[in-house]
Amino acid sequence: MAPTGRVYIIYSGSGYWTTFYSLGQLKLVGDDPLSYDSWEKSPEPIFSKSDEVNGCGHASYTTSPDGKSLWICYHAYTGTNTQSGRFVFVEPYTVGSEGVIVGNGSGHPQPISTEMTIDVNPMPLAEKISGWDESTETPGSPEPLPDGVFATESISLKGSSQIIGNIGTNAVEAGSVDFSWSAEIEGDLWIGPDGDWTKVVTGARPDPAENVTGEIKPLPLAKEYLLPQFPGFPALEGKEDLVAGWQSEDSCVINESGAYGNIDVTNELTINVGDEDIEVVADNLSVTGSGRILVNRTGSGRLILYVIDGFELANNGKINPDGSYDDVFLYYAGG
Rank of each mutant, 00 (worst) to 15 (best):
M123D: 11
K68Q: 11
E279G: 06
A282C: 11
H58L: 09
D326T: 11
W132S: 05
L28G: 06
S160F: 10
S286N: 07
T270N: 07
G301S: 10
L294F: 08
P65H: 03
S50F: 01
S97K: 14
S141E: 14
T288A: 07
I164S: 13
V328H: 04
P231D: 03
S135C: 10
I319V: 12
G168I: 01
Y11T: 02
L219E: 03
F233G: 02
V120Y: 10
V265M: 03
E224W: 13
L189K: 02
N267Y: 15
P92L: 04
I155Q: 02
P218T: 10
G203V: 03
W246I: 11
L23A: 06
L236I: 09
M1L: 14
P321I: 03
P234C: 07
R205Q: 14
E249M: 14
K27S: 15
E184D: 12
P139T: 08
G165H: 00
A314D: 08
K68G: 00
D194Q: 13
S84Y: 08
M116D: 01
F233Y: 15
G192V: 03
G30T: 05
S38Q: 08
P218Q: 05
P144V: 05
I129Q: 09
I254R: 02
V253R: 03
D275L: 14
L242K: 09
F150Q: 05
F20V: 02
W181F: 13
D327C: 08
E224K: 15
P111D: 01
E173Y: 12
